[in-house]
Simulated scan of single mutants.
Amino acid sequence: MKKYTRIRKKCWASLWSPRAIHYRANQGFEESGVALAVILQEMAPHEVSGVAFTVNPLAGEANELMINGAPGLGEAIVQGEIIPDQWLARKPDGAVLRFTPAPKPGQIPAVTAGYKRPLRGCLTSLQIRELAGYCLSIEKHFGGTPQDIEWSYGDGAFYFLQSRPITTLQ
């Protein structure tokens, strides 16, 4: 609790920095009307994180979901810093159609002679089915518009961090 008190005090103090005071003066804000809201949000568990598309954006296939995942935080996937495990799942049941594992450190990320793929990735087939079901429910909630969904998994449950329309479909 002391940590949060320090954070709130730092946020409140930031209202009175020279930069903030200068900004308010230039914008015509009254000092008496200055207010601040501090929101502290707990981070979702993230044993595995990733991105799911309710339509396969690479093939434009409306009957497939594409799910990307990797251990840990999903930021590295979103920023394109790593190659994640990738699943193509069938609509509407989420059955895995194809799995492409991420290359492990030191492996060449291409199918080459002698390259052995692991049997499964960072999620099980049952978890993929569960995730696909949630993603299709999110798509339905947004009127059937295909969605780009950021998710995490931890403590035995999926968490949904963000959903937006897929912008790369033609």
Rank of each mutant, 00 (worst) to 15 (best):
A70I: 10
A76H: 14
I108D: 03
R98P: 01
C122G: 05
W87V: 10
A113H: 06
P71G: 08
L131K: 03
Q107G: 00
I128R: 04
L119W: 11
P105C: 06
P92V: 01
Y115N: 09
A70G: 07
E64N: 02
P101V: 04
G94M: 09
V96M: 03
V111F: 10
A70T: 12
L126I: 13
I108K: 09
A70P: 02
I67M: 02
T100I: 15
M66R: 09
I108G: 00
T124S: 15
W87D: 08
L97V: 10
P84L: 11
Q127L: 08
L126N: 15
C122I: 07
A89M: 05
L65V: 07
L97S: 06
G114E: 04
A76C: 12
L73H: 15
I77K: 15
I77F: 10
K104M: 09
R90D: 02
Q107K: 07
R129L: 11
P71T: 07
I82Y: 08
F99H: 05
E130H: 11
Q127W: 05
Q79G: 13
N63Y: 04
Q79S: 15
E75L: 06
N68G: 10
G94A: 10
A110T: 02
P109A: 04
I128M: 10
M66T: 15
K91C: 00
V78F: 12
